[in-house]
Design a binder for these strands. Structure first.
Lengths: 245, 245
DNA sequence: AAAATATTTGACCAATGGTCAAAATGTGGC
DNA sequence: GCCACATTTTGACCATTGGTCAAATATTTT
């Protein structure tokens, strides 16, 4: 039994099967949410039996948490990539906004899943291991945003007197999550006359940044060319969800 | 059988029982979320049998939707009451912010329930009647905010060139819901150093208002006395969640 | 090839949302 | 007060599904 860096064939097979299960579970989750499928169906889909699923995951919740954490890891990757964008701090923050849209486009149901996780009974049914993995990826996303905020304050782009970096980060995170959830609500979309959900999310982020006094403010600077660069350099495939006028 | 304004004794009894069921369901929901209780337990609690519950509600989801709509009605009541506050438009918007905190204090789990409702399978299991009731109360809350925004633009307190009233309303709603959800997340609370969740929510609302250019901006005006008046006139019982320094 | 070990399976269990025939209760006529 | 009829309540019962585990199957070792 190898605990070392070189996995045995068995271990590789186990890993491959875990990814197979996760990919099918992800598909079911994105298509049907949480309730509208069961472990039997998943077992059929991956062509293993139910019992085998339970050798990988302690419960349905544990499995869903694993899918969610995978998505969160991808989001953290995008955030960290976006944070490297060369430019003013607010442009880099903007790049993260684009990263989040790119993510939301690929995992349209993720924010609902994330909300589900917040309901108490989920965490107690999941394994400690996966809980920690989720917390770790969550911390990465937080850190990516917070890091830019701290730098912005250090550089004087963002006033540091009124709010702590954490308060500013919290405001950005809150508005982003809230906006993503709300744009996915058909009724609200009609009420608010939203035709481009991702644009609405980014607009709301801009409002928070402006509110924080993050220079340069929206009407003092032309972000159109910034946006073009962000897309060109970081998210060339963003045309699927991006509608730049 | 009376369809008129004067209900028969039977109809009154039916109504009373429905409220009994709803009040117990509300308690269970707030204490345990959705999963951690079942219809049998609720039946025991109200001292009727399971079958009787299903004469009032078509499914567990239908019941939960009814509870949620009741809460939403209360929120709409608070919003409409807050909108009557005498003062500048931004002060009245602020009053609604307080109303939402007052609501959140009384229904701490409501936003999680609301998120649950957004998951597809819920709506299809609920009755058409209750779906409409929910939409109606949702529209009331939206309208209360939107009405102030429209007035603010008409009065010139809020610039009307850059955003439509609906976009501004949407931004406020998004940041509020997002902030309420996020402040209830223990991990995030630690990360963001949040000691007063309601204050954080209201701060985020202020950031959006400032971002929208809603006069008078936060640093041009002392809202402390406004806040005192809002509390005194509208929410005298707010001391439970309010920590004015 | 046989024994030992590891893995996979699906029948089975318990919990629970939902149903419905039967019991209980209420109502009206005499 | 009693009977027939209508309405309401009940809880045994059903179907679904998350989760378990002894037996079957596959793999490795001797």
């Amino acid at each position: 039994m190898s605990m070392s860096a070189t996995p045995t064939r068995k271990e590789r097979e186990f890993q491959a099967r875990e990814e197979l299960i996760l990919s099918h579970a992800r598909r079911l989750l994105l298509e049907k949410g949480f309730q509208a499928w069961n472990m039997e169906q998943l077992a059929d889909a991956v062509e293993y039996s139910k019992g085998t699923l339970y050798q990988h995951f302690t419960s349905k919740e544990d499995l869903v948490l694993a899918v969610s954490t995978d998505a969160l890891r991808m989001r953290a990757d995008l955030f960290e990539k976006a944070a490297q964008f060369k430019g003013k701090t607010r442009e880099r923050c903007r790049a993260i906004g684009f990263a989040c849209c790119e993510f939301a486009y690929n995992y349209p149901e993720y924010f609902h899943i994330e909300m589900m996780l917040k309901s108490a009974s989920f965490w107690e049914k999941a394994s400690e291991e996966r809980r920690q993995a989720h917390a770790f990826q969550g911390a990465r996303t937080w850190r990516a945003v917070n890091h830019i905020v701290v730098q912005a304050m250090a550089l004087g782009d963002l006033p540091s007197g009124r709010f702590t970096p954490e308060q500013a980060t919290f405001a950005l995170v809150s508005v982003t999550v809230g906006s993503h959830i709300m744009t996915q609500e058909p009724i609200l979309r009609v009420q608010a006359g939203i035709t481009d959900p991702m644009a609405s999310v980014r607009t709301n982020q801009d409002l928070i940044c402006d509110g924080l006094g993050w220079q340069p403010l929206l009407h003092d600077y032309d972000y159109a060319s910034t946006d073009k660069n962000i897309v060109k350099e970081l998210f060339p495939s963003a045309s699927a969800w991006l509608h730049l006028e």
